[in-house]
Deep mutational scan, measured.
Amino acid sequence: WVPTKREEKYGVAFYNYDARGADELSLQIGDTVHILETYEGWYRGYTLRKKSKKGIFPASYIHLKE
């Protein structure tokens, strides 16, 4: 896992994603996520609506905010 280059990196989910394991994070369309790390097509972070739950999710489900 590699920390993100920018201190504040955010994105928005444009697909729903159902977590398949305890380390994964479920997403709903429109969720804003804070991205902490990246690795081979995956991000690690949390949604702003539930900051206490961190997990991994596919990068392809996220539109990055500039």
Rank of each mutant, 00 (worst) to 15 (best):
L25I: 14
Y10A: 04
H34C: 15
H34R: 15
S60E: 12
V12R: 06
Y17H: 02
D23Y: 07
A59C: 08
Y17S: 00
Y46E: 03
G41C: 08
D31N: 04
I29E: 07
H63D: 07
L36D: 05
E7F: 13
Y17C: 06
K53R: 11
G30Y: 03
T32G: 07
W42H: 01
R6E: 12
K53W: 06
I62W: 02
I56A: 08
R6H: 12
I56M: 10
G45F: 07
E8T: 09
E7N: 14
K53C: 09
K51F: 08
F14R: 15
V12S: 02
Y10Q: 05
G30N: 02
E24C: 07
Q28E: 10
T38L: 08
K65I: 15
A13S: 05
A22C: 10
Y61T: 10
V2T: 11
P58W: 05
V33H: 01
T32R: 13
E66S: 14
E40R: 11
A59M: 10
V2W: 09
R49G: 14
S60M: 14
I35E: 01
L48M: 12
P3C: 10
H63P: 01
D18W: 10
L36A: 02
F57D: 01
N16I: 06
L48Y: 09
L27K: 02
Y61A: 15
G55A: 02
R49I: 07
S26G: 04
Y39I: 09
W1T: 09
E8K: 09
I29K: 13
E66A: 14
W42N: 00
Y46W: 06
G41D: 07
Y43S: 01
K9L: 13
Y17G: 01
T38K: 15
G45V: 04
Y61K: 06
G45E: 03
E7A: 11
P3W: 07
T32V: 15
I35C: 04
Y17I: 02
R49K: 14
E24H: 06
T4C: 15
K5S: 14
A19W: 01
Y46M: 04
G21D: 09
G45P: 01
L36E: 08
S52T: 11
P3Y: 04
R6W: 10
L36F: 07
G55D: 02
E8M: 12
D18M: 12
E24G: 03
I29P: 05
D31Q: 04
F57M: 03
K50C: 15
T38D: 05
F57T: 01
E37A: 10
D31V: 06
D23I: 05
Y43Q: 00
I56L: 12
E7I: 10
L48F: 10
T4F: 09
K50W: 11
L25Q: 00
T47W: 03
K50N: 15
E7H: 14
Y17D: 00
G45W: 06
T4G: 09
E8N: 12
P58R: 04
A13Q: 02
F57W: 03
H34L: 14
N16D: 10
E7S: 14
K54I: 15
D18Q: 14
G30V: 04
A19V: 01
E24A: 03
G21V: 05
G30H: 03
Y61H: 15
G11P: 00
S52W: 14
K65H: 13
I56W: 15
L25G: 00
Y39A: 10
I56F: 12
I56E: 00
Y43P: 00
L25A: 01
G55I: 02
Y15G: 13
E66H: 14
A19Y: 01
F57I: 01
R49P: 12
D18L: 11
N16Y: 06
D23F: 08
R20D: 05
V2E: 09
W42Y: 05
F14K: 15
I35V: 05
V2S: 09
V33C: 03
K65P: 07
S52D: 14
F57N: 02
G30L: 02
H34G: 07
E37N: 04
Y39D: 03
S26F: 04
I62N: 01
D18S: 12
E40A: 13
L64H: 03
S52N: 13
L48E: 09
Y46F: 08
S26W: 05
Y61P: 02
T47R: 15
L36H: 03
Y39N: 13
R44D: 00
T38N: 04
S60N: 09
T32W: 15
I29T: 06
K50D: 15
E40V: 07
P58A: 05
L36V: 06
S26Q: 05
A22D: 13
G11V: 05
G41I: 05
I35N: 08
A13P: 02
Y39Q: 10
G45L: 05
H34E: 05
S52Y: 12
L36C: 14
Y61S: 09
I35P: 01
N16W: 08
K5T: 13
Y39K: 15
A22Y: 08
Y46R: 04
I62D: 02
L27C: 06
K54E: 09
G21T: 14
I62F: 01
L64F: 09
D23A: 08
L64N: 03
R49F: 12
A22I: 10
L27T: 00
D31F: 08
T32N: 08
T32E: 14
W1R: 07
A59F: 03
P3N: 06
Y43K: 00
D31W: 06
G11M: 05
Y17R: 00
Y46D: 00
V12L: 05
K65M: 15
F57Y: 01
L48S: 09
E8P: 10
T47M: 11
G11N: 01
S60Y: 07
L36T: 08
K50P: 15
G30D: 01
I35H: 00
E40Q: 13
Y43D: 01
I29A: 10
E40D: 13
E40C: 13
D18G: 05
Y17M: 02
K53A: 08
V12Q: 04
F14T: 13
T47A: 12
H63V: 14
S60C: 14
A59S: 13
S60P: 05
Q28F: 08
S52I: 08
Y17N: 00
E24N: 02
L27W: 03
L27D: 00
R49N: 15
L25D: 03
G11S: 01
E8I: 11
K5Q: 10
Y43G: 01
A59Y: 03
D23Q: 09
G30E: 01
A22L: 10
K53E: 11
A59L: 04
D18Y: 12
W42D: 00
L64R: 04
F14P: 00
A13G: 01
E7M: 11
F14G: 07
N16A: 13
E24S: 03
Q28G: 05
D23W: 11
R44W: 15
E37K: 02
V12H: 05
T4E: 07
N16M: 07
G45K: 00
A22T: 11
K65V: 15
L48I: 10
V12P: 01
V12A: 02
G55C: 07
K51G: 09
A59V: 08
S52M: 10
E8W: 11
Y17T: 00
L25H: 02
R44Y: 15
I35D: 00
